[in-house]
Write a protein that binds this DNA or RNA. Sequence first.
DNA 1: ACCCTCACG
DNA 2: ACGTACGTGAGGGTA
Length: 881
Amino acid sequence: MDKLVLIDGNSIAFRAFYALPLLTNSSGTYTNAAYGFTMMLMKVLEEEKPSHVLVAFDAGRTTFRHDTYQEYKGTRDKTPGELSEQLPLIKEVLDAFGVRHFELDRYEADDIIGTLAKQGDADGMAVRIVTGDKDLLQLVTDRISILMTRKGVTDAERYDKQAIRDKYGLQPEQIVDLKGLMGDNSDNIPGIPGVGEKTALKLLHQFETVEGVLDHIADLPGKKLKERVEEHQEQARLSKELATIYCEVPLDFSLQDLAYRDIERNRVAPVFKRLEFKTLLDRIQTDEPQQEAKKTKDVPYRQVTNDNAHQWESLLEADELALFVEKTAPNYHRADVLGIALSDGEEQLYVPLETAKEWKALTDWLADENKKKIAYDIKGTQIALRRHGLASAGYDFDVLLASYVINASESGHELSDIVERKLDGSLPEDDAVYGKGAKRKQLEGEELAAHLANKVHALTSLKPVLDDELRTYQLDALFYDLEMPVTHVLTEMEWIGVKVDKRQLRALGDELQERLNELTTTIYQLAGTEFNINSPKQLGEILFDKLGLPVLKKTKTGYSTSADVLERLAPQHEVVEQILHYRQVGKLISTYVEGLLKEMTAAEDKIHTRFQQATTATGRLSSTDPNLQNIPIRLEEGRRIRQVFVPAEPEWVIVSADYSQIELRVLAHLSQDEGLMEAFAKGMDVHTKTAMDVFGVDAEGVTSLMRRHAKAVNFGIVYGISDYGLSQSLNITRKEAAAFIERYFASYPGVKQYMDDVIRQAKTEGYVTTMLHRRRYLPDINSRNYNLRSFAERTAMNTPIQGSAADIIKQAMVEMQRVLQVEGLNSRLLLQVHDELIFEAPQTEVDVLSERVVQVMEGAVELSVPLKVDVSAGKTWYEAK
DNA sequence: ACCCTCACG
DNA sequence: ACGTACGTGAGGGTA
């Protein structure tokens, strides 16, 4: 049977607030009420297992009751700020739980609850009302009962008709009569002075209702009582009216809209993390697996040895096999191979590395491009094998990439995560098998073989499921024609690596270190004390406590000392500028000099980054260990880091080709805005053109300030504009920013129309798409939480732009690799940095390479505006600008 | 493990 | 009244 749980939000929050000490989390936010409320919520959900849930809140201060009685709740103290500021947190928790909450102007939570309780009762549902307010007892029927909080937070007592009879000797409907006679201090309901609970109950037992008592004033015991009742008849009637819950609140939703499903840990966990509900976090994370009692069944396997290998050769004839290569660490450029497993879906083979190397049938199978292979992370698999001298080809399905293409935003794309989502049963997580952190151990023998057998078998089960899903959502072209080919291009890029001039890098490091030492001395002098400049905490104390500089911005944990704050403080104290410079130099040393030195190979002085192809929500790549997509360029001092990136061969050069304004061109294409398309068609400087349109001047009239502002607006448009964001970036007021945005949209109505359309599409479909049909789901787009919703709206505007640009350069990479191959060029693609490709090339090939790369990149897709690519070459990455 | 800060597009 | 520009990864400090 359906069960409806109605929670009196303010009442429970109030109770939690006073039951718990005034806790704060590390950011100084009070969380005790939210914490207690959440405990109560979880307890109720667990114990009642409702099919429908709603939490009702009081809306404003005035309600329809104030129309008849202005003093209603007049004695009540204002809700403390420490409590009211927690109400949004509570609502956030509810959103994460997927529990509806509601409040309505002029009505109290009680009335909303009453209205829905009656509806539920009429529909034959069991109704549970959770509150600390005894008024609600009047709603009890055979099907409606109340969980009344007692002491503490989660301790509650259940009231049904019998319990009310036992306690008061009354029917539930008589609770309002009780209030009518005795009043209620907390709501400032007067009742009849001098009549308390005892007298009221006695009267009601005899005369049943307020009206009954008033009809029999003559029969009342005691002269004083008679007088009081006589005198306060109207007040008693009014008090009863005030205490009566109004059960016909106009609601714009139905009971069916309150349907509640089980909690999704993935949505709740981040909220708990942020609020620092550690115990509750543990509870949701450990509870679930135990409850589900995962059906983990080890699949059978055979271990291949040098002696028995020949027995298994027939398996290698299969049309398609899954291949899983287990590594000793995630970084396959360094890790060793632990073992290899194969599966045809029925039989699993475990082959120790040394056996694999000597088993010719296997090495032939690996290298044969006609022998199809399913793998998880083809790129890592192929490189790990190659490092052990094992060539491999014929990969036709990457489970990792398929999972990513289906839904990039899913919380994890580890094999165990994918199995959890797409198959019944589960795969033990690597962390559980190997242990985590210090407890990590090397597996061997049977244990390792069994684990790998489970993994490789999972690949065979996953492929048909994922392939089917790719086709269902028309993502198969994106997967097979783009992401799969891209992974092969990236394999070669990573494998080749980038050469670094180690001596020069060390020299640069020494020079920077000297500079840093000088800065340190100066800063200590100017500050009058020595401290750790790298510690934002200590730095904050020096700047704001000791030197008394104004606090312009705070972070969750204290003073903000970020660059934009320091820049504004610089005129007030000369130490600030030194600190900014110190930060800059320190970053160069630790991240770039030391960071890069750590990643260089001993044999070749090369760096092999890993391009993550299944990480970003938009379809971009990212780069790790080290990140070669954020090498400094904006400031000259940092830009010099690029001097150490050199060609791997003598007489070769670095060639860089980058798209000019690809995101705004994509926007022009997607929006079909006339003005924007015209700007690109005529080859204009787009920021200047924007300045002309927004400020209504001709090309000569555009000042550098106007262009700077127009440029920021263009950035904002791409990011999903907000007046606040623009005001921050330009250091102007929000009003001024809003005016810019309005003028921009007036000048480019097509862009405005597009932004509205894409948000509307996201709201109705739940996702947005890129030019090559990549999808991004936006679960918060219809959230009632303003912040979540706004964020989703900006994402809806940004993702088709950023994601389509990512699609385009990926397409160009695939085509470029093909062109280099068929034309027999020796030039090699080394890096991709979102809108640019970096090659190393023999000096002799520079001209032909430049010509080809422009052709390929500009022709990667057909847009309504031209794509433009700039190329340059130099002896180092620094000079290729 | 998390926060702050900062490097890139 | 609310509070955020979009997408990333890395290093150092702190709890």
